[in-house]
Nucleic acid binder design. Structure first.
Lengths: 332, 332
DNA sequence: TTGTATGCGTTATCAC
DNA sequence: GTGATAACGCATACAA
């Protein structure tokens, strides 16, 4: 039955006017006689007519579509971000195209495709996109507005909206120092993301300011519970008890939970008495009594507000850093 | 500088041919002279021309866009599904529009909008969509292909792809019965979703077959750790120790983890010795030593394969149920 | 206020 | 093989 959609012309015919008057009936500020408008809307209702947004996009050169690039679906933290993004974009009449960046569909291909589909903007959400990528021959001089969310921009002239890592790590390290910890360790995750987050950088910097320059480093290859557990085991297995760290900061909560489970389960050590643990993100399960993870909450809603503000051109497009919130629980 | 995109006409001019020959150069099976094709592709490269997919969609009446409706971003289980969906759809050249269904943007509005944008299909992913919704006057006779994923379809003629709840609950109840549990309880989550999942229904049915007809019921209002903890507390607070259940099945893992934490933390009871716990979904953290949650894994990849197959018209559109896998750990 | 012509960048179809 | 005409459904500018 897939009967064709009614178009403005069909409505025009049914209402006995020209199709342009029909369009006017659907254009908010247009000048049109009340009686005709009424007749037209009636005809439209019975014919079940509704403007074709695709055709409109072509004519207006505006699709009200924004592409959001994501490359790490393992991190549950993505979900609240996606919820905030879709909510706010939809409030602006914009639809979000969720683009999965992976080995079968890389950044360059994705940008070209988004460009061909005429999206209004691209949001790189926590995605590893380098300057060199933009230099790719296939891209030519890309003219699409790009914004980076939840990650430092490594691209010249591309604004990024991030949680202020410097501020966050100051608060965290101050807290740890006050609690008396003096032998810190840091666990980083996937390398490409890690450097851009700059958490390790500031962690080191602030400990140095407190006179502590030796920081144990361990790295997980992904942001997963298992990778976190594996990384801390690799460290503990080769480190004599008397040389061990007394506090471990993990780049995010998932790693922290994995580390905690390994510390307690595999080695029978206590958290925080033997080794304290801090995470980042405030993942729901970190707050449960089983973990009581001390962590840092990102200002998701505000960050998303800012990106959407830039997308809408309502805000000047420039990188900004927003303050988050330290959440002290029992793990450190 | 937002310079305008090059169009086929620009390339035609540069290559000294008509714009239609240019199109042919970009149409796989078209008949065109080799030398001209080469000249055209060259010109296209320097002009940075790439076909406008929006215009193509309008002309072909095919957008290669599929809308995916989601209404519960609190469930981390959504992420692996979204990853599988985007991966497979992108492999078919289809882009997924992520639509957030909430109080500001309801199903009817979302369907109309998706229709106006000419999407090729809509996938209702775990979303509560009732028959009555389709009857809404505003929808008229909707002609868009609809598919339901990870949830029973309550809509006539709309195919659903789900994990076989009957089979799953058989396996689960059989396992629990073998382990010697005889006083089961069931915790359901958000009401609208719950009935469609039919997990409680089959749970009851199979216990009855085992001669156990009394089943304690508790319900959480959402699928969250906190709601799960709250629901079990409400039950334990009013139930004398000798009347308590010996095993609790929760509609999903998040509820189960919340219940476990409450059982152990608030009441000092042991899992599984005092009360065993089973979940559903196989959420990563359920597998950690802290929980060791016995659960049931949904066949995400196969389910997504089937939906995408239907979207592509490669598979007959009819409801199907796929078998999952029981994962026995220490909690039951 | 209403109708007309033209354009958006493709595809489909037909003539040459 | 190549060019031309019409069409997709709407927007813009202009004329009546």
């Amino acid at each position: 039955m897939t009967q064709k959609r009614a178009t403005a012309r069909d409505v025009a015919q049914a209402a006995g006017v020209s199709k342009w008057t029909v369009m006017r009936a659907f254009t908010p500020g247009a000048s049109i006689a009340d009686d005709k408008k009424e007749r037209i809307l009636e005809a439209a209702a019975t014919l079940n007519y509704t403007p074709n947004l695709l055709a409109r996009s072509l004519a207006k050169n505006l699709t009200h579509q924004v592409a959001v690039f994501v490359d790490d679906f393992a991190n549950p933290q993505k979900l609240p971000y996606l919820e905030a993004l879709t909510t706010r974009l939809q409030a602006e009449g914009i639809v979000t195209m969720l683009i999965n960046i992976n080995k079968h569909f890389d950044h360059v291909g994705a940008v070209i495709n988004a460009d061909q589909r005429q999206v209004d903007a691209i949001v790189l959400f926590g995605t590893a996109f380098r300057n060199e990528t933009l230099m790719d021959k296939r891209l030519g001089r890309i003219t699409l507005p790009l914004y980076v969310l939840a990650r430092d921009s490594q691209i010249d002239g591309v604004p990024a909206v991030v949680c202020d890592a410097q501020l966050a790590l100051t608060e965290i390290v101050n807290h740890l120092h006050q609690r008396g910890y003096r032998r810190p360790g840091f666990m980083s995750g996937a390398h490409v993301l890690s450097t851009a987050l700059r958490r390790q950088h500031y962690f080191r910097e602030f400990w140095t300011q407190h006179g502590v320059s030796e920081i144990a480093e361990m790295s997980a290859d992904r942001y997963s519970h298992e990778a976190g557990a594996y990384a801390i085991r690799a460290y503990l297995d080769v480190t004599p008890a008397e040389e061990r760290i007394d506090v471990l900061m993990c780049e995010n909560d998932i790693l922290a939970l994995g580390a905690m489970d390994a510390i307690r389960g595999t080695y029978g050590l206590r958290v925080p008495e033997d080794i304290a643990v801090v995470g980042f993100d405030n993942f729901e399960l970190g707050g449960t009594p089983a973990y009581g993870l001390t962590t840092y909450e990102q200002p998701i809603d505000r960050m998303v507000d800012e990106v959407v503000g830039m997308v809408m051109g309502r805000r000047t497009a420039e990188s900004i850093m927003l303050p988050g919130r330290l959440i002290v629980r029992t793990s450190a």
